[in-house]
Write a protein that binds this DNA or RNA. Structure first.
Lengths: 226, 226
DNA sequence: TCAAAAGTGTTAAGTTTACACCCATGA
DNA sequence: TCATGGGTGTAAACTTAACACTTTTGA
């Protein structure tokens, strides 16, 4: 099955590593793991896994995400391939990094507990092993360039959310504060961010209108700018 | 040397493929190759090669670029990893795509000839094998998002260039025409695009002022917007 | 009654776009 | 002398940024 010409070339372990973003209490978080095997067992790392023989690399990343969160079909984008010779002290491993956006509330807490995985604030990350910190930096940069012009932030929020939550999400990702009135003005210009008649009374005494993102309406409108 | 735990996992051929951009006569071009080996010998493809055992993947891409162009240290950025199970009909191969920007005049023509490589207009590309066309689309998109805010276009031009050449380069990459006066106004606001006292008399009767990009001055200024 | 978060418009500043003619030269 | 590409400024339209007070309600 393998072409004769190809056989002379070396083969490599190929892994995927997942940068899993979540949002809670106004903070952007990452799901990090205490590494469960040698080498460097117990150190902080991204959740990763080796690619299987007959598995697309995207599928491998989704499988790893599912093993840790219990969730299927998460929003995920490739960050890039990391292939320095000595990046992994266990062996030569070429790793493809993916970032995923998840609604923290939907994550299966038993699974994360079993995998010794914890949500850590992106502004106070522990030291990560290998080149995982560089992967995180690339992922964050990618997310930052994506979010102002693509409706991806909603994957980090519950189905219904308040405008304050949405704004805090943008502030947490971009790392800067945003004028409330200007932000809400822009939201109002986007018909696919729909006001519902539900009210959130958990985070404020007065109560805040809950909104929802209408994917279908967005597909028709096809513009976005926040 | 390889950790025991890793050994149970499969290994893969890993390749790099290079999207090599050039600019000539107002057109954005790609250096494409008639594939010199089976399977699918003779079909149009990107220039690629397998990663060697003790070689960083970036180094593999630079090596492939050097083999084809005779040039070292070209401007190069990763596009991403392509890893569908059946993307390459010769075997399972995971490929990392890189795009490079070169000054066509500096490319060694004997080498490209020996490798049956030719410059093809990006607006009239032949059909490429495997997923190479998707790699090209991703690379072009990357280049398009990069060029308005980063001074990368200069890698596609000779050391000295006219403002008309620079404008045509932007038009070719972005695929839209730009107002001449507005373009030149913006260029003038960037002190690191320096007017020289040389005149180009090849492309116009009247003669056009030649400019140069001053990397050092840019490092200090650190802003860019075209 | 007061602390805490929700909600609401206007104006000035800055940025972007549109637009047309004269110049210098070689053929 | 004329065809070709080089070079130049202004005004209108649009976008972005700055800014402060009232409302509701639970503790």
């Amino acid at each position: 099955m393998t072409s004769k010409f190809y056989q002379q070339y070396p083969k490599f372990h190929v892994a995927v590593d997942c940068i899993i973003f979540g949002f809670q209490a106004g903070k952007l978080k990452l799901l990090l793991q205490k590494r469960p095997f040698e080498p460097r067992q117990g150190e902080w790392s991204l959740m990763g896994g080796f690619v299987n023989r007959d598995e697309d690399i995207e599928d491998a990343a989704q499988r790893v995400l599912h093993e840790l969160t219990g969730l299927h079909g998460l929003y995920m984008r490739q960050v890039g391939a990391f292939g320095s010779v000595n990046r992994d002290s266990g062996s030569r491993v070429i790793s493809i990094a993916y970032f995923a956006l998840v609604d923290i509330e939907k994550v299966n807490k038993d699974l994360t507990y079993q995998n010794s995985a914890y949500w850590e604030d992106v502004t106070h990350l522990p030291v990560l092993l290998f080149d995982h910190m560089e992967m995180v930096r690339c992922a964050l940069q990618r997310l930052r360039t994506l979010i102002p012009s693509r409706p991806v932030g909603f994957h980090l929020l519950p189905h219904l959310f308040t405008l304050t939550q949405l704004q805090q999400l943008y502030e947490a990702i971009l790392g800067e504060s945003i004028d409330k009135r200007n932000f809400r003005k822009r939201v109002n210009e986007m018909p696919f961010i729909e006001k519902t008649d539900e009210i959130d009374r958990v985070n404020s005494k007065r109560g805040a209108t809950l909104y929802r993102f209408n994917e279908r309406a967005y597909q028709e409108a096809q513009f976005f700018k926040l």
